[in-house]
Design a protein around this nucleic acid. Structure first.
Lengths: 250, 250
DNA sequence: CGCGTCGTTGAAGCCGCTCAATAGATGTGG
DNA sequence: CCACATCTATTGAGCGGCTTCAACGACGCG
């Protein structure tokens, strides 16, 4: 409803060199000269509101994108209308890589809070890759890392029970916030219960119930989207299924 | 027990040009000259028996591998000892790509029947990529395709019920056999019930029960690992959850 | 033939889902 | 500022699909 079909990049020149995310983002590991080449092709978006698309499944691949602020979800929709959130993306993270094979996006990228992003025209990235081997390596690594992340998610969804899924999820968010330089113990979940449930292969009721249980047992303090992790160690044990909720520490 | 720690490549020169798989495998799209460059670095393995490793989680990434014959499973094992099969790989398919980021394998590759493979030293692949842009593209596409495959699996494991999972699985195997030039209606499952169940996030009992039900209802004929698909359309409907088993066609 | 492995089938139980009601948060207009 | 509507989150009760536990059958190999 609030979505727009077309994304108009502002023509503001982006300076990757001055960007606080450059050590997390695509330019990671590039020297000043190579950074300059990359900067020339980057376009920055206007702010998106919740629910707006960066790209839709079926769109032709024209850009790779880096989340610049906010949070973006990738959603896969099958012929039946079932949708599965396959990942949440935070600032500095790259999306669009899975479209390289078919040159068409098979998933949709949707902002789940006010967000901005940078776009890198894909054909130019391809050219620059030949000039900058380091960038080629960086892209390989990014895709490889994404594969690894999906492997983890597969293990979580396929083998863990609801309690293990939720604790794994909270710890994953926590460590990603830490990587961005924020607190690993206190943060705002940008995704709704519905989105969390979808991502983990659960229902919102189950997510809600287990969050409440974690709170009753003193593992976390949670109010709506505001989370504080109180007992990180027990949460870690729960996430691996080594410890049942009953016999928690303390 | 039958596993060997070290893999000794035979020094037999491999000719990708004459290989029947070259249109499915890494060389896809390469011209004769480029093919020659790739051939120079390829080593072919001796036959592996069921249970033997191509690489183990934790091993340093030295080669990318192409399955040449047989079937290989990729297995992810977490700290808790839970393991999840994240894919089955048939002749022409490439494994090892997920290790590019950390330069260490995070999953293990295990033959599930007598299998052979080809190895491509990774550092040389990297070099050659700079000489042959087409190979670089090919690698990007392979990784991208792998991401897409994992997305599908996520949707299957996360959102489908047992019946939908099994029919999706059978159809996936069927179409991959077809892509290799074999029959899409009659084939041998190389994986055990245990492996199928693990892959789909089910138990062997459930897999067995639903296979039997499909047979009772005339969708397939199955005897141990020998499968014949009788009613492909209904199976297709089942896989998308559009049709319950009861109200099947006919 | 005996043994071990793999697959099938049955019965009972539990985890997470469905359905439903309530509470809290957010937004709008008067 | 409050009344009202809407949306999200929480909590409870009951049910069902898949798992667990268990026994049996089929096949291969010594």
């Amino acid at each position: 409803m609030t979505n727009k079909k077309t994304i108009d990049f502002s023509n503001i020149k982006v300076s990757c060199e001055d960007c606080s995310l450059n050590e997390l983002c695509l330019p990671r590991g590039l020297d000043t000269q190579d950074l300059g080449r990359l900067e020339e092709i980057v376009k920055r978006s206007r702010p998106l509101r919740t629910g707006e698309y960066i790209f839709r499944a079926g769109d032709k691949l024209t850009n790779l994108f880096a989340v610049r602020s906010g949070t973006v979800k990738l959603v896969l929709i099958d012929e039946n209308g079932d949708d599965q959130i396959i990942g949440f993306y935070f600032p500095g993270e790259i999306i669009g890589l899975d479209a390289i094979d078919s040159e068409r996006h098979l998933v949709s990228a949707i902002a789940i809070e006010t967000s901005t992003y940078c776009g890198f025209p894909f054909n130019k990235v391809n050219e620059i890759c030949r000039l900058i081997p380091e960038l080629q390596n960086q892209l390989f690594k990014l895709m490889s890392r994404q594969l690894t992340a999906e492997n983890e998610l597969l293990l979580t969804i396929g083998k863990k029970n609801a309690e293990e899924k939720l604790s794994t999820f909270l710890l994953s968010i926590s460590s990603r916030f830490q990587a961005m330089g924020y607190s690993s113990r206190e943060f705002n979940l940008s995704m709704s219960r519905q989105e969390t449930a979808n991502y983990l292969g659960l229902t919102i009721e189950t997510v809600s119930r287990i969050m409440s249980r974690f709170q009753r047992e003193g593992l976390i303090s949670i109010n709506r989207k505001q989370v504080r992790i109180i007992n990180m160690d027990t949460l870690r044990n729960l996430s691996t299924g080594c410890l049942s909720t009953e016999k928690k520490t303390g």
